[in-house]
């Protein structure tokens, strides 16, 4: 942990800030949420990494999608993701968001979450243990350091692709496009 190296703080305060202050919006989509309480309370204590849960997506910069995502929930997931301030990072938790997991043949869950919103990292497993969250967090640090956690940029660049996928699923969405065509230029 290079949190205490003052030199790095002076070089790129914003990047260091994003690394060591991950405010998480835990989205209780599925069974994965059961692993979150132990990870943020006394047993595993996520706060020592600067990871704390916050109340609304406006205050968050890490989006943790815990478990399968049903079609109905996906709408809320997209909405929440779009309301988070940039830079924002997304981590899919458990095998269901990756490829459908045990719901691979379900009619009302989506199979690939990264078709709808960009994902910076995955935690595989059914269920992953709380330790896996911390490993994911340290990996995310490395990605932020190398500026590879750029899902939010990809979302902006390929917004037409994501929006098309979203609209394919729902028909018409309740909210206007996040980026207009001029924004991308």
């Amino acid at each position: 942990m290079d949190r205490n190296q003052l030199k790095k703080w002076f070089e790129s305060p914003a990047k260091m800030g994003h690394k060591y202050s991950l405010h998480v919006v835990y989205f209780c989509t599925g069974c994965g949420i059961i692993e979150i309480p132990p990870s943020i309370t006394a047993r595993w204590d996520a706060e020592r990494f600067g990871v704390i849960p916050v109340a609304t997506p406006r205050q968050a910069n890490l989006f943790l999608i815990t478990g399968y995502v049903s079609v109905k929930t996906l709408k809320a997931v997209i909405r929440t993701y779009e309301q988070m301030p940039e830079p924002k990072f997304t981590v899919g938790f458990g095998s269901c968001p990756i490829n459908g997991g045990m719901y691979w043949d379900s009619y009302n869950t989506i199979k690939h979450l990264d078709k709808y919103i960009p994902i910076d990292g995955w935690i595989a497993g059914c269920m992953p243990r709380p330790e896996a969250i911390f490993i994911a967090v340290t990996h995310l640090w490395t990605l932020i350091d190398k500026e590879m956690a750029d899902g939010y940029k990809k979302y902006k660049e390929n917004y037409r692709y994501y929006r098309a996928n979203q609209e394919q699923l729902y028909g018409k969405l309740d909210w206007p496009p996040l980026f207009s065509e001029e924004d991308k230029k």
Partner: peptide, 10 residues
């Protein structure tokens, strides 16, 4: 750290 991060957010 939180305040520094928050200031650099959009």
């Amino acid at each position: 750290i939180d305040i520094i991060k928050l200031f650099s957010q959009k």
